[in-house]
Design a protein around this nucleic acid. Structure first.
Length: 508
RNA sequence: GGCGCUUUCAUCUAGCGGUUAGGAUACCGGCCUCUCACGCCGGGUACACGGGUUCGAGUCCCGUAGGCGCUACCA
């Protein structure tokens, strides 16, 4: 390849960016960086009907959060602009005319009702060589008549003239040769006079050519239309880019690609950021889709997880930085089959990255949760100590409170299961005696207190587990939590002993 | 229905003619231990099916079945 690598991510702004789109863009990014090439960002808003305000900003913000940078495109600038297709009308018009003049496209006037009627009349109706003669177009009507109609203001579309009977070969970097016969292709609409905009297919080919895109890395849903794209490049006399069609992201169980509904169904986000759903007419907020960012997932975890959903580095490594992925990425190591989304695995990645992330993130999260539960966070230092002690047992920051609540509020109830196991008949006695012993100690410090307590337990002939766990239950409310003297250190002498004595009184 | 892609543990996957079919997550068990978690160690579970080709097939070919996608004046 003598040309510098240029790839692009080209979403249409019809709503929040799907997590599958994130992965597609990630692969484009990794590929571009590895080859020292460019990644461009184009907005494919050729469907004026489906435009959703805020979607473009949302997409940009998502990638900013994820750490994926573009080199050129909408909001980034560059020499091939504009990068929003709705601003390129004149360009498409010109190229549609080129096809028309070359006899490779034609005008068609069939309206919605007529097309519908044709579909009703003929099973598996397709607008192609076998049917176009019966339809209202410049081929059946004659060019003069067509021009007349256009001059009279009749709405029209431009269709691509497809010659039947040819095996069109698409060379896919992931799948190898894919062969589709042109007979099964229909004369795709390339342009509609109603909004003076092209459809995806035309705009896509024109833009990729003009923007000097060398590799088209996109979702598998485009594979069936890639022969059409090959034919379009040929009609223009342009060299087609290399194609790579990525497998789809599937729902966790069984069938279908991952959809926004699956988010509600399985209880995890399918969008990078939270999105407010608005009524199309009134703009009124009617609900939200949850986002990975707001749910407390770290971008590194999301990226790492997504990268491995359909690609593998060729070794056994699974924790990777972006730089490592850039080094190792390889389209030939992309799998061909769809990947079921496994949130448990993402959770594991998140746990991993949470251990090495800036603790301030967790401190802030915990502080908010403490306040939200009407408790006192005490001090930043206190919160930080708790976080250091507890972070290894969470997958998401929001689990902090349930793990750490006893550091901020005395137990109000005692878990039945723990009580059954550890609050035996002798428990009140153990705890009372332990309290008396600890009360008498001047130095309330885990490091010095622990050996003294252990010695005391041994001297009494008690079982360590029986005493310590009974004591733990009085402090925590159940048998869980970090090392017990770490808890008494933080709680302090007064509060620790108070909890113990309250429990003895309440539990008897 | 038509066309295309696809098929290795529950899930993500390694494998590119000869392997005890490997790793990760999840699950189970053990160790550590005052509990929980982390960590460490161990365990079970997979080549969709049927034909070929070959001395030999998870690996190549052909069928069948399943899964997915596309089949718009959407992308």
């Amino acid at each position: 390849m003598s040309h510098p690598v240029v790839v692009r991510f080209a979403p249409s702004p019809t709503g929040p960016l799907h997590i599958g789109g994130v992965r597609t863009c990630l692969y484009n990014y990794l590929f571009a960086r590895q080859h020292g090439g460019k990644l461009l960002f184009r907005i494919e808003d050729t469907d004026s009907q489906r435009f959703v305000p805020g979607a473009e900003e949302y997409i940009l913000e998502s990638f900013k959060w994820l750490g994926i940078q573009f080199d050129e495109g909408v909001s980034f600038g560059g020499d091939h602009g504009p990068y929003r297709q709705s601003e390129r009308r004149d360009i498409y018009k010109k190229y549609v005319q080129v096809l028309l003049d070359a006899g490779k496209a034609y005008y068609a006037f069939d309206n919605k009702a007529e097309l519908e009627a044709a579909r009703q009349a003929t099973p598996n109706f397709q607008y192609d060589a076998s049917t176009r003669g019966q339809m209202r177009n410049s081929l059946s009507l004659g060019l003069d008549k067509a021009k007349e109609l256009i001059a009279a203001g009749e709405p029209y579309v431009v269709r691509f003239l497809i010659e039947p009977g040819e095996d069109v070969i698409v060379n896919d970097l992931i799948r190898g040769e894919v062969k589709i016969n042109s007979t099964i292709l229909d004369d795709k609409v390339l342009y509609k006079s109603a909004d003076e905009l092209p459809t995806y297919h035309l705009a896509n080919i024109v833009d990729d050519h003009l923007m000097e895109v060398t590799h088209v890395i996109r979702g598998e849903e485009w594979l069936p239309s890639s022969p059409l794209h090959v034919l379009l490049y040929r009609a223009f006399g342009w060299e087609a880019p290399q194609f790579a069609h990525l497998p789809l992201l599937l729902a966790p169980e069984g069938n279908g690609k991952l959809s926004k509904r699956d988010g509600d169904k399985y209880g995890f986000p399918v969008f990078p950021l939270e999105w407010t759903i608005r009524d199309k007419e009134t703009g009124e907020a009617t609900g939200t889709y949850s986002g990975y960012r707001e749910e407390g997932y770290l971008p590194e975890a999301v990226i790492n997880f997504l990268a491995l959903l359909g690609w593998n580095p060729g070794n056994d490594q699974d924790i990777m930085t972006m730089d490592e992925m850039i080094k190792l990425f390889d389209l030939s190591h992309c799998s061909k089959n769809g990947a079921h989304f496994d949130i448990k695995r993402l959770l594991w990645f998140n746990h991993h990255y949470l251990q090495e992330c800036d603790e301030k993130i967790l401190c802030e999260a915990l502080k908010q949760q403490v306040v939200a539960h009407g408790a006192d966070p005490k001090s930043d230092a206190y919160v930080e100590t708790v976080v250091k002690l507890m972070k290894e047992r969470i997958n998401l920051p929001k689990e902090l409170w349930e793990q750490c609540n006893f550091f901020f509020a005395a137990p109000t109830e005692y878990a039945e299961k723990s009580m059954k196991k550890w609050w035996k008949a002798e428990a009140p006695q153990y705890v009372s005696e332990l309290c008396d012993f600890m009360e008498a100690q001047d130095d309330w410090n885990g490091e010095t207190l622990e050996p003294k307590v252990m010695e005391w337990i041994a001297g009494k002939g008690y079982k360590t587990g029986a005493v310590m766990n009974a004591f733990r239950c009085t402090l925590v409310g159940e048998a869980r939590g970090p090392q017990i003297f770490a808890i008494t250190d933080l709680l302090g002498k007064e509060e620790s002993l108070r909890r113990a004595r309250v429990a003895v009184e309440r539990l008897g």
